Each structure stands twice: as structure tokens, then as C-alpha cells.
Simulated scan of single mutants.
Amino acid sequence: MASDTRRSDNVSGKTLLSAHDPSPVRIFNPAGASSFLLIGDHAGNLVPEGLASLGLPAAELERHIGWDIGIGELGPLLAERLDAVFIRQTYSRLVIDCNRDPARADAMPEVSDLTIVPGNQALTAEQRAARVAAIQVPYQDAIGAELARRDAAGMETILVSLHSFTPAMQAVPRPWQVGVLHDRGNTGFARALIAAFERAGDLTVGDNEPYSMDTIDYTVPRHAYERGRAYAEIEVRQDLIATSQCCIAWAARLAAALGAAADSVNRG
């Protein structure tokens, strides 16, 4: 089951999201009892009606520059298997990247993997603020509200951010099937998750690969670091979750690894 949250923001008399546009946030399995809270910063690739597809053909929005391919399907399957809450973003990372500080230029990139994004050229401060208010703020607020609810109820929470990556970037192959990103704060769970994946014996596991978690990341640092929350950012290679059957298989694999890592940390 999924629920929608909608925020109507008025910036200089103009609302970015029209009545025809879906909510920027979807919450799957909102009553989930698991300690895992799953999030999907780049799970959607829609563009608000008023932004006219950012001037891009549909094929560009279907590429990795438009979203994290496979996560929109994998996330609900994993949430169901774990009985976890999954909070996901609806709109393309090209409209606004919810895993970036909104003050950064690449939060609304003019160019992404060599593709020029016409609708992001020379944005005004007002236009940028409208995207932040209508899309990023509701998404981050939904995560914060769920964490606050769980804290008030005395629930343990492990924050798990789901992402995917291309098999190659600019013709350079990426050998990892899965990566776990971590940096500051409580990194014990992330390290236990790397070990759980490695014990499977059939995976090349990236430790802060193909990306490292650093000052560019926004969501996990915002919600996990200061509170000392256990967390992990998972990257799954996109060719491995390209079909529904693949997503089902990887939901099972991820659920097993997450459970094993949690058990390992609990055993201390």
C-alpha cells in the first residue's frame, strides 16, 4: 500500500506542481514494523507539467541521468519482504536532485553525463526556490517526520538509502555488482553490510564504490550523522535490476544481507 503527500507551494503567485501533477512523495507500507527505513532519492523520473519535460525527449529521462533505474520497482518489493516503510521521490533528479544540497549548482544540472538540459539553463533564484519548496522540502520533511515518529515510539531505526549505478561510465567498466557507501557518523551497520555481501561469495562488493559518500551527499548525512543513526547507502548495478524478475531476486538478496548485518551488529 502506498500513500501520497502533497505540498502546495506558492512562489510569486505561481505553483510549480499543478493539479495534474502527482505528489512529490510516495510512502509504501507506512505501517511497516521493521527497524529498516528505506528511502529512494532518485526513484522517479517524472517532470512537472509546467516544465515541459525540461526540453528533453522521453528517452533521455529514461536514462540513468533521469533517475536511478530499477529502484522504483525494487524499493516496494524490498519493503514488502522486510515489512519496512519505503519513502520515495517522484520527480526526476534533473528537476531537482534530492540527494544534493539545494544551493549546489548540480542540484539542478545544466549538463548531465554530456547531455545538455535545456530546462535547467540559467535558472533564476526564484525558479530554483520553487523546485526546492515544491519537491525537495516535502521529500526531506517526510523522512524527518517518519524518523521523529519512530523515535517518539521508541523504535530502532536503520536508515537505508537505495540507489543504482550504470555498468560503465564513459566507457569505463564498473566491476562491482553492489556497493555500500558510508562516511561519518555511525558506520558500524554499513561495514557489517559489506561483510554480509562478501560472505555470499558470488559478488564483487564495492566499499565506497562506484562512488564514495562525501560532502556531496545530502539525505543520509542530514538524517543520520548528528543523531548517530545506523545507516547504509546501497548501490546496485542497473543491469542486475533491469527486469521485474531481477528486482524480485535482488529484493530477496538485499533482505537477507540487511538482516544478517543487523544481526551481526546486535550481537556486538
Rank of each mutant, 00 (worst) to 15 (best):
L162C: 12
L162K: 06
L162V: 14
H163K: 12
H163F: 05
T166N: 13
T166G: 13
P167A: 10
A168K: 08
A168V: 13
A168C: 11
M169G: 07
M169E: 15
Q170R: 15
A171N: 15
V172Q: 15
V172W: 04
V172C: 11
V172S: 13
P173E: 13
P173L: 10
P175D: 06
W176Y: 12
W176C: 13
W176G: 13
W176I: 14
Q177T: 12
V178C: 08
G179R: 01
G179S: 04
V180Q: 06
L181Q: 09
H182N: 05
D183F: 00
D183W: 01
R184C: 08
R184P: 03
R184T: 14
N186M: 02
T187W: 00
G188N: 08
G188T: 14
F189R: 04
F189G: 05
F189C: 03
A190N: 02
R191S: 09
A192Q: 03
A192F: 01
L193D: 03
A196W: 00
A196L: 01
G201D: 04
D202F: 02
D202I: 08
D202A: 06
D202K: 07
L203D: 11
T204V: 14
T204W: 00
T204G: 05
G206P: 04
D207T: 11
D207L: 07
D214F: 01
D214V: 11
T215R: 13
T215H: 11
I216G: 10
I216R: 15
D217M: 04
D217Q: 12
Y218I: 11
Y218L: 11
R222T: 15
R222Q: 12
R222Y: 05
H223G: 11
A224Y: 00
A224M: 02
A224Q: 02
A224W: 00
Y225P: 05
E226M: 10
E226C: 09
R227C: 06
R227V: 07
R227A: 15
G228D: 06
G228C: 10
R229A: 09
R229N: 05
A230R: 02
Y231H: 14
E233F: 01
I234N: 10
R237D: 07
R237E: 08
